[in-house]
Design a protein around this nucleic acid. Structure first.
Length: 268
DNA sequence: AGGGGGACCTGTGCGC
DNA sequence: TGCGCACAGGTCCCCC
């Protein structure tokens, strides 16, 4: 999409999680997407009209690109554009012939328009913490952010104001690798452990990106390929399975309404 | 300040 | 085969 004009856009219903912006199609049709970037879990397309197209995938949102660009050999278990039309909610036709389809069964995703020059004031960005793979995210940063915090470290890492972009899977995985019990209060973790945590958060994210993401049920990359990082989960969704380190069964618990997976023996 | 609970919405997998 | 329930990647809101 980057560098191309949006020739046509079709919204197949009036809302996703929120209603589409007023005159959505008119406001973005004909615009050139000068830049497509990301902040936390938000996609940000800066348009030649001066507006930014802000998009969020929610839980099940997915973009699939199809069109004249030759595709790789189809894999066995790919998601193709148009194979689930019932949940194809938005179709962008791009200059050059590519078709970009947004599919989202649960519709927790959304699209919004915001003045590109005032992105700092976009409500979704308010108070966001640093990106986990930025230089700003470090042992020293975690010490400061966790200082005096009485919340369990699992909840602290899921809090986008502490670090922006970690989700439920990667928090469990990072805590396991760092050997930290998810129930441990954030403010009570020793600096050396926080150093390890900062490193492991980064490792998990970088490895997951390299593996093409994690497919639990329906995640796919934009060319329809499934992710592979789920094969490298050490604890997530592994309740009852042996811990890869000590072979004791992995446990599942619920914290702040979300599942946490951990090894009670390796994570102290 | 945190936790708990619920909301949004649809699909899937399980026990019976 | 069908029913009812639990649960799922995210975020937001209200109440205690």
């Amino acid at each position: 999409m980057e560098g191309k004009r949006i020739l046509h856009v079709e919204t197949r219903r009036k809302d996703l999680r929120f209603p589409f912006p007023a005159n959505f199609a008119e406001r973005i049709s004909g615009a050139r997407m000068n830049h497509l970037g990301r902040r936390a879990k938000y996609l940000v397309g800066e348009l030649s009209t001066g507006e930014a197209l802000i998009m969020h995938l929610g839980m099940t949102g997915r973009f699939t690109v199809s069109g004249p660009k030759p595709k790789k050999k189809p894999g066995k278990f790919r998601h193709q554009a148009g194979e689930d039309e019932k949940h194809d909610h938005v179709v962008f036709e791009m200059q050059g012939g590519a078709k970009v389809v947004f599919n989202d069964a649960r519709r927790f995703g959304f699209m919004e328009l915001w003045p590109a020059g005032e992105l700092e004031s976009y409500p979704g960005f308010d108070g966001l913490g640093p990106e986990p793979i930025s230089n700003e995210f470090s042992s020293a940063y975690l010490e400061e952010a966790f200082e005096g915090k009485k919340t369990p470290v699992k909840s602290a890492l899921l809090d986008q104001r502490v670090v922006a972009g970690l989700g439920n899977i990667y928090v469990s995985e990072a805590l396991f690798r760092a050997g930290i019990n998810p129930k441990k209060l954030a403010g009570a973790i020793k600096p050396d452990k926080l150093g390890r945590l900062a490193v492991e958060v980064r490792n998990v994210i970088n490895e997951a990106i390299k593996a093409g993401g994690s497919t639990i049920s329906d995640f796919a990359t934009t060319d329809g390929e499934l992710g592979y990082f789920q094969h490298r989960f050490r604890v997530y969704d592994k309740a009852g399975k042996p811990c890869p380190t000590c072979a004791k069964p992995i446990k599942r618990m619920v914290q702040a309404g979300r599942s946490t997976f951990y090894c009670a023996s390796c994570q102290k």
